[in-house]
Each structure stands twice: as C-alpha cells, then as structure tokens.
Design a protein around this nucleic acid. Structure first.
Lengths: 142, 142
DNA sequence: GTCAGTGCAAAGCTTTTGCAGCGCG
DNA sequence: CGCGCTGCAAAAGCTTTGCACTGAC
C-alpha cells in the first residue's frame, strides 16, 4: 500500500516553495503511520524511539507549516495541541474522549457533516474547518 | 431580572461543601454578566477594572472548581482555556471563530443537539458534554 | 477554633524565538 | 552558494503549586 497522504503533503510543500529537510520529513512519516492524534511532545518522543530524533522546536515548526497548509489538522485537548493528518476530502472524522480513562475514539457521520455545512451557510460563514468533540464515559468505563 | 445561574451555582457550591469566599464570588458574578467565553486572564483583567481585583491564581482555582461541578464549561481556543457559564438545560450553544478577525459568534441548533445525542448512543458513550467549533471566514471578512 | 479560600511568588508545562551552522536546490 | 531548515538554548506565555494568612462557618 502506498501512502497517498505523505505524497500529497510532500507535493504541496514543494509547491508552496518549501525545501525537503530531514526533520519535517520525519514528522510527516510518523504522522502518516498514526490515525490517532498526537501532541508535539509525543511526536518528538516517538521519533526518538525510532532513532530519527528531531529537535522539539523543529517538530513545532514542521507542525506549524503543515497546519497552515491545511495538511494536518490541529485540535486542543486538555490544554495541549494535538495533530493528525488532514485528509483532503472524505475520510473526515471526529473524536469522543472518555473522562475516566482518557481514551479517545474516532467516529464519522455523513449527516453531521451535512448539518454543519448547513449551519455555516446559515451564519454566512465560509467554513474551512470544524471540530466536534464528545466527552463522557466510554462503554468500558460507563 | 434575577440571575438564575449565579443562584444555582452558589447553591451547588454550598451543596458540595464549599465556603463562600470573595474571589470565587467575584468570578461567578463576572461570568454571569457575560455571554461570550472569557480566558482566565480576561476575567482577571475585567475584575481589576471593576475594582474587584482577584489574584490570578484564585481565578484559576475558582474556574477549576466550577468546571468540575459542571457549572462552567471550558473550551480551548488557540491554546488558551476559555470559560463560560454552563446552563443546566436548554440554552446550549456552540461557536464559530473567524480565522481572519478572530471574532467569535455563537449559534444553536436543536437538530445538531439531537444528532449528537444519537451519535453518543451509537458509540455506547454516556455523553456528558460536547463541543462544536466552526472555523473559517465570517460574513464581514469573507 | 478550624480549615477552606486567598494572594503572592515560584515552579512547571507547552510553545515560540534567536542564532549559528548545515545542506537542499 | 544563497537561503531555508535544523538543533540547541533561552525566552515567553499559560497554568499549577507552596506557603503563610485571612475569614467563613
């Protein structure tokens, strides 16, 4: 299986005039292997485990560029920024976080997306991104 | 017009065994006058303007207690925690934030609430709170 | 009187910035 | 061979914690 997201991201980076440095490449590679959101610190730690150590500042800088190009999606959870690949179209999901065990699950729902698009229109907003977060007790903890 | 939320909050605080201190009371009073979300720093600043100065640490402590009692709702925006009164039932709204001017608007939608409740059930979650955030260009900036 | 609540200052995190050197294009 | 990328270290937020003191019950 190829990694369409990584390829897409590299292409977009080049198109935006960015060079291909090692640190950003490593962050890109790690993100594509994950589906769950990761904090900058978590990315830094995992890269170190994989012997592809990258300065924490470079992780932040890479994520900043990627976020601005809308190649990764940023969300704040419990006061810390977390990131995940942003898939160009389709494959759009949201998160439910368990207050007890802290575990996070992802879900998607076409009707929710449709409803949110409608809401944006109603507000006169050109909505470019949106987040939905559910909090409560997961099946195991409830 | 009375302030049902403040009264409710004071009652719940007492019921949870908390004493009525000046700092927390001031935070409570300020929050009830606002509809928009406020950061801890903003609360601290406004209280100072009103000559009801409260230590920043006390603001954080008050907000922490109130959040745990589910009397205020916390949301992270751009890496900073913001707070607003949590209305026991009904009067539940969400936010749209403009990427350009940073202004925030509130909206509510019964269908959205219904849909989210359904999603929680589908996931087996006992959903206790949820957030929906739209990001994009507001009518004025678009 | 006791102990939660408070203010201040210090510490702890997360994130950003400055700067010198490396390396892609 | 210039300029973007990187790492390190320092700085800049935001938030929490330690401690002594005040004040509610």
């Amino acid at each position: 299986m190829t990694e369409p997201w990584v390829d897409h991201a590299r292409r977009e980076l080049a198109r935006a005039g960015h060079r291909a440095g090692g640190a950003r490449g490593a962050v890109l590679g790690l993100l594509s292997d994950q589906h769950c959101v990761l904090s900058a610190q978590a990315i830094h730690d995992r890269l170190r485990e994989q012997d592809r150590a990258v300065g924490l500042a470079s992780v932040y800088r890479a994520l900043d560029v990627l976020t601005h190009l809308k190649l990764v999606h940023r969300m704040d959870v419990d006061g810390t920024a977390c990131y995940e690949p942003a898939y160009a179209s389709g494959e759009h999901h949201h998160h439910a976080i368990c207050d007890r065990c802290g575990r996070m699950s992802a879900f998607e729902d076409a009707e929710l997306e449709r409803l949110i698009d409608g809401l944006g229109e109603r507000l006169g907003y050109r909505v470019e991104a949106h987040d939905v977060v559910l909090r409560g007790a997961c099946p195991a903890c409830a």
